[in-house]
């Protein structure tokens, strides 16, 4: 395989002295879709925040493109801007839909933003809503705007935190299609957090199961689903894990 884009070493994350994440080692490779599955509170969102350099790990380090991110060391803006997150809720700014999608480009002073915004909105099928106030959108529309807003910056790494939770099948299908296309065509690296093991199966190349802040098993998608090495993985995949 290629050189990893991310290398995590001995990561610990503590909130008020409570350890919620411990990842001794994790590599993420360019161009892959890695799904993080696991029950509520397993630390999936926490791991995504670290991968987007939104907070430093309490202990350990993350190497991204050879640059180390750890406690007391900020990531340079130019590197941070290669990564972005779509959160479980869209968190839209109180502006128009178009202004929301344009936001990341304005931060980067991209001169071509109008055409890019149009294209991104067309991609999620919302070009007709460009001038609507973002806060008046439905849940599914809002999530698609959030996805367009992330995609328009052409990230090298796209972090998705349950992007289709609480959405209807139409919106789920559309978002999944866009994720798969973006990964295939732009070679975007995707880390996808999902509760839904079937979604992981549909989209991911590799799957990691997280439990209580640890990665229990990480393997390519077929292995995880056909011959998991950890009984807890089998239980989770089989829907027998209570959470």
């Amino acid at each position: 395989m290629n050189n990893p884009i991310y290398q995590l070493h001995n990561i610990r994350q503590l909130y008020r002295k409570r350890e919620v994440l411990q990842v001794d080692q994790l590599e993420i490779y360019p161009g892959e879709i890695l799904a993080l599955v696991g029950p509520s509170g397993a630390g999936k969102s926490t791991l995504l925040r670290l991968l987007n350099f939104l907070e430093p790990p309490s202990e350990g380090r993350i190497i991204f493109h050879g640059t180390t991110f750890r406690q007391g060391k900020e990531m340079p803006t130019s590197l941070r801007r290669r990564v972005t997150t779509v959160f479980q809720q869209p968190y839209l700014l109180n502006r128009t839909v178009a202004a929301n999608v344009q936001y990341g480009l304005r931060l980067r002073k991209n001169p071509n933003s109008h055409a890019l915004v149009e294209a991104a909105l067309a991609q999620v099928g919302l070009d007709h809503l460009a001038q609507q106030r973002a806060r008046t959108l439905s849940g599914g529309e809002g999530q698609r705007v959030a996805l367009a807003r992330a995609l328009v910056t052409q990230p090298e790494v796209l972090l998705l935190d349950e992007p289709t939770a609480n959405l209807d099948p139409y919106n789920v299908g559309m978002i999944e299609k866009i994720i798969a296309e973006t990964n295939r065509e732009q070679k975007t690296t995707v880390v996808l957090v999902t509760h839904n093991v079937f979604q992981a199966k549909r989209l991911a190349h590799r799957v990691a199961l997280m439990l209580d802040g640890s990665i229990i098993e990480i393997n390519d998608v077929d292995t995880i689903f056909e011959s998991p090495s950890d009984p807890r993985t089998a239980a989770f995949i089989g829907g027998k894990m209570v959470y």
């Binding site: 803006t77 972005t84 936001y103 990341g104 931060l107 807003r149 992330a150 910056t153 972090l159």
Partner: peptide
């Protein structure tokens, strides 16, 4: 909502840009 600031930061805003947003 502090989550808005987190989102803005995730979109690549610097600290100053986050404050402005």
């Amino acid at each position: 909502d502090p989550k808005i600031r987190l989102q803005v930061r995730a979109l690549g805003a610097t600290r100053w840009q986050t404050t402005v947003a």
